[in-house]
Design a protein around this nucleic acid. Structure first.
Length: 106
DNA sequence: CGAGCCCACAACC
DNA sequence: GGTTGTGGGCTCG
């Protein structure tokens, strides 16, 4: 399946997210010169690169988890939490514990 | 090329 | 917590 340049940009950017850090849809949108975070989510939910692209490091600007694997809630989201925690990113009640871990793409 | 629909958001109320 | 606004991508025509 062919993917659009936009998706490639999104995936590429996310792929560069350092371990132990997270980024927001808004930050990504800004990084790829886009102004719509929804477009990011639209691309991410498709996520053809499940383990390649650490989509679990992408959270909402509100510092909440957001969604994962096409679900805003459920086991998948809990799994996302566990992955982040394993990287040193602790969440409390589905929220980022340390806001300084937000990666703005440098 | 144009109109409509979709989205894991963001901001405001 | 619910509603509104925004904005781009995608699909269909």
């Amino acid at each position: 399946m062919p993917m659009t340049p936009f998706q490639q940009k999104v995936y590429e950017f996310i792929r560069e997210i350092p371990r132990g850090k997270v980024t927001t849809y808004a930050a990504i949108a800004r990084a790829i010169h886009c102004r719509s975070a929804q477009a990011i989510g639209q691309a991410l939910k498709l996520n053809p690169f499940a383990p390649e692209v650490p989509c679990h490091r992408v959270i909402k600007a509100d510092l909440t988890l957001g969604g994962y694997s096409g679900a805003t809630t459920g086991v998948k989201v809990r799994e996302k939490l566990a992955l982040l925690k394993a990287e040193g990113v602790e969440f409390v009640d589905g929220r980022l514990k340390d806001s300084s871990r937000v990666w703005s793409g440098e």
